[in-house]
Simulated scan of single mutants.
Amino acid sequence: MPPTVSVIVPTHNSAKTLGACLAAVHRLRHPVTEVIVVDDASTDDTRAVARRFPCRLLVTDRNAGPAAARNRGIRAATGDLLFFLDSDCAPEPDALGNALAVLREQPDVACVHGIYALEPLFDDGPVEAYRLTHGHHWRLRHVGRVRTTLFAICLIRREVFDTVGLFDEKLRASEDVEIGDRMGDRYGIVLTDTVVCRHDDDSRLGSLLAKQFRRSQMLIPVALAERGPAGIRANSAAGLLTAAAVPATLPTAPLTGGWPVLSLLFLVLFTVAEPALLRFVLRRRGLPFTLFFFAVHLLVQLAVVGGAVVGGIRHLTDRDFGPSRATAAKTSR
Rank of each mutant, 00 (worst) to 15 (best):
R284V: 08
A223T: 13
L205A: 00
V222E: 06
R233A: 08
E274C: 11
P229I: 08
R279K: 13
E274Y: 11
V222Y: 03
L278C: 08
T256H: 12
R227P: 02
I232W: 03
L191T: 10
L250W: 15
F266V: 01
S203D: 02
R233V: 09
L267S: 15
I232D: 00
L191H: 08
Q217Y: 01
D201S: 07
H199W: 05
T271E: 01
D202Q: 12
T271R: 10
A243C: 06
A230Y: 06
L267H: 07
R214L: 11
V196L: 11
L278M: 08
R279A: 15
D200T: 01
L264Y: 13
T252A: 15
P251V: 13
P254D: 04
G258D: 04
R227Y: 02
R284L: 06
T271V: 15
A276N: 03
P229V: 13
I220C: 02
V246L: 09
P254A: 09
R198A: 06
V281P: 06
K211F: 11
L191M: 15
V272F: 15
A248F: 15
A245D: 07
L255K: 00
L208F: 04
I220K: 08
L209W: 03
G231S: 08
L267E: 06
L224T: 04
T252E: 03
V281G: 07
G228H: 15
V222W: 06
L255R: 06
V222K: 05
E226I: 00
T194H: 12
L265N: 00
I232E: 02
F266P: 01
V196Q: 11
D200K: 12
V246E: 10
C197F: 11
R283M: 05
F213H: 12
F280I: 06
R198E: 01
G231L: 04
S263Y: 12
G231A: 04
F270W: 09
S216L: 05
F280M: 05
V222I: 02
A225F: 01
H199G: 01
D201R: 01
R204N: 09
P254N: 08
L240S: 11
L224R: 14
L264Q: 09
G206M: 04
